[in-house]
Simulated assay, not measured.
Amino acid sequence: MGNQGQQGYQGGPPPGGPGGPGGYGQRPPPPGGFAQQRPGGMAQSPPGGNYGQQPPPGGNYGQQQQSFQGGSPGHGPSGSGQQQGGRGNNSNRGLQWVSASDGFIPDKAVQGGVEKDGAPLFVARAMYKGGLHPGKAGRHIENGGCAIGFGHKEVNVKEYQVLCGDASQLRWVKQDGQLSIKGFKPVEGGHEDSGEPLYIAKTMTEGSQQLGKCAPHIKKGMSYPYGHKELTTENYMVLAYTN
């Protein structure tokens, strides 16, 4: 898997293209980058595209719209539509978590990956067994629209949150093995039931770019849902802020 991932990061664009399989009419994100969905389903690639950047920390899960304000997400009431503060203030980054369900993808969703057939995958997270787990969302994902990895299995959920906003504020940072946060600020996307923070990650596998979670306490660095299993890899990228 390591060799395949290394080649995928340095090669040409992933499989698929405008109007490709799935009928999304979107071009998959360029290698090392991710696309931002505009209203109407048009995709826009953020500047740059080098692996090595990360996304912002989250707020309370279950709210319709959330500004990234730092700190670990809590467990707020569903659908309140309020923006919550935390440790620090990142509202000027133009990013927020938007609640969704049953395969719905909000406007300006941040596209972090792509299936091998060209279907886009969006940065998402979901509550499961006391934790808030980063994963992937897409219209094509069966049994809910969002998938996370947990307990060596791919878990599908119907209620989740999607990262939305200005994708140019984010970048991907290359990692090997256990997550080492040095020289960049990763986006805190969730937490374990014990409270340990979880960050957003992606990796190449079988011609696709898959999304999942990473953290210093995850032995190989990243775990992700794929093929009805929770897989792990030492070759991945973590989502971070541009500055």
Score class of each variant (00 low, 15 high):
L163G: 03
A201S: 08
N60G: 09
T205N: 08
A201R: 15
P14V: 01
G165H: 02
G183L: 04
L198A: 09
G23I: 03
G59V: 05
Q44I: 14
I141G: 00
Q69P: 05
P73W: 04
M222Y: 12
M222I: 06
L198N: 12
G86D: 02
G8E: 13
A147S: 12
G85F: 01
G22D: 01
R93E: 00
G144E: 04
S80K: 04
L179C: 07
G76F: 03
P21N: 00
V123D: 05
G22M: 10
W172C: 03
H152D: 09
E154R: 06
Q178I: 05
P47V: 10
G12T: 03
S99E: 07
T242K: 09
F184G: 11
L179M: 10
G52H: 06
E115F: 03
L170N: 06
G79S: 04
G62A: 07
G94N: 08
K158N: 14
M127D: 08
S208P: 08
D107G: 11
G49C: 12
H152S: 09
L179Q: 05
T203R: 06
L198Q: 13
Q210E: 15
L170Y: 03
R139D: 05
K153G: 00
Y51K: 06
T232F: 00
E154N: 03
G59K: 01
A167I: 15
P29R: 05
R27V: 09
Q111F: 01
N92S: 12
L211W: 03
Q64F: 15
A215M: 00
G41H: 15
G183T: 02
G189A: 13
G85K: 04
G151M: 12
G190P: 15
E192I: 02
P30C: 02
N92Y: 14
Y24F: 10
H152R: 13
P47W: 15
I218W: 12
S208F: 00
Y199N: 00
L198G: 09
G33Q: 07
M222C: 14
G76Y: 01
M237R: 04
A126E: 08
Y224I: 14
S91W: 01
P15R: 10
Q36T: 14
I181P: 15
F150C: 15
N143Y: 08
L231H: 09
G131S: 09
V155G: 02
S80E: 11
P31E: 03
L95W: 10
Q65Y: 12
L95G: 00
G22Y: 15
G190V: 13
G12L: 12
S80W: 12
I105S: 01
G151N: 13
G58N: 05
G19D: 13
P57E: 12
G5N: 07
G23W: 14
G118Y: 13
